[in-house]
């Protein structure tokens, strides 16, 4: 595990050897995260990358305390937020944390807003907590929120319902709701997946501006390395429920220490030259419940040998600022 510098203030978020499973029957658990490790400093930014099914979304749900309603539980490790343990919080304690301390931007701009309520009605839910005030006060607050996320014609948008807005506008409203209570940490689960490229960069720019303005830390989930590279100084790569490599984004991209990180990097479409064959990772991503023994990536790994196929998923091994779970990371240079 990466060591936190003991001299500085406590990290904002620290996830230690976290294990999460679905409860499928009485006493039967199906692991989805095993194990996740990373640290996020106040006002820092960390990108979570991985294929679908690698546990990224479940990790977000762990951090917003909604595992139970998806039939999952934490069964190992610990999480601290601002120095406080939040691994076993009850619902009422989560209620104090959510929104005020941790903001959340859901995956799709399409389904992220309630289709039957007006924008004003949905945003007033968040401002009422702070103002508790009159109709005109709530209205002014909501208008202020919409202006903050740079929505043109906010008075008209306020009266509309989600289906009357474009995807980008909807995502701006969702962001407005997430930052309304001034959280210290913003969790964004693939916030731009459903948007087209120009809108995507606008939304990312908005998130960056708001981060600076409010001093928020950002946990950004994406399967798009280009997005992570642009937005996050740190990066954690997940494969089959485990963080397999963690460290500064530029280092991980320029000299990956785990074959999976390298494979993700070489299969990027934005770096490919016209006419080149696109590289892809051989085989399929392993799904929950079908993880192999040993390092879970070995069936698809170009440098795997017999040592990789036995025992448990290897732990992250820290080297300076970064950590990799590959037992053969020293061979990475050679095989390039």
């Amino acid at each position: 595990m990466i060591n936190h510098d003991p001299g500085s203030s406590p990290p904002l978020l620290s996830v230690n050897k976290l294990r999460v499973s679905f409860r499928v029957g009485s006493g039967i658990n199906l692991p989805v995260i095993d194990t996740a490790d990373f640290i996020l400093e106040p006002q820092g930014s960390l990108g979570l990358v991985g294929e679908s099914g690698s546990g990224k979304t479940m990790l977000c749900r762990t951090l917003i305390g909604t595992l139970a309603r998806h039939g999952a539980v934490i069964n190992g490790g610990n999480i601290t937020f601002s120095g406080q343990p939040i691994t076993n919080l009850g619902e009422s304690e989560w209620r104090k944390l959510r929104g005020h301390q941790i903001g959340y931007i859901p995956q799709s701009s399409m389904a992220g807003l309630n289709p039957i309520l007006t924008i004003k009605s949905q945003l007033s839910e968040v401002v009422k907590h702070s103002t508790g005030g009159s109709e005109s006060e709530v209205r002014r607050e909501v208008l202020g929120l919409l202006e903050r996320v740079r929505i043109p014609r906010p008075t008209a948008v306020m009266r509309s319902r989600p289906h009357q807005l474009s995807g980008g506008m909807r995502q701006r409203v969702i962001i407005a709701a997430a930052i309304a209570q001034g959280p210290k940490l913003l969790i964004a689960d693939e916030p731009t997946t459903a948007l087209d490229v120009t809108v995507q960069s606008e939304i990312l720019a908005l998130i960056n501006e708001l981060r600076e303005e409010l001093g928020m830390a950002l946990l950004l989930v994406s399967h798009d390395l280009a997005v992570i590279e642009e937005m996050c100084s740190l990066m954690a790569v997940m494969y089959a429920g485990a963080t397999v490599e963690v460290g500064p984004t530029e280092n991980l991209i320029s000299s990956p220490n785990h074959p999976y990180t390298r494979a993700l990097n070489t299969s990027r479409t934005d770096k490919a030259r016209p006419g080149d064959l696109l590289e892809s990772i051989p085989g399929d991503a392993v799904s929950v419940g079908h993880w192999p023994n040993g390092c879970r990536f070995w069936p698809r790994c170009p440098i795997a040998d017999l040592d990789c196929q036995d025992g448990l998923q290897p732990d992250l091994l820290a080297i300076e600022q970064r950590a990799s779970a590959c037992i053969h990371s020293d061979r990475m240079e050679v095989t390039d």
Binding site: R98, G99, I105, L113, E125
Partner: peptide, 22 residues
């Protein structure tokens, strides 16, 4: 309940009765 907007509403902390109905 599986919808994203429900998850987002839980994180926003929408009041229980309003949450149940709307």
């Amino acid at each position: 309940m599986e919808e994203e907007f429900v998850e987002a509403a839980i994180v926003r902390g929408v009041k229980p009765l309003r949450f149940m109905w709307h």
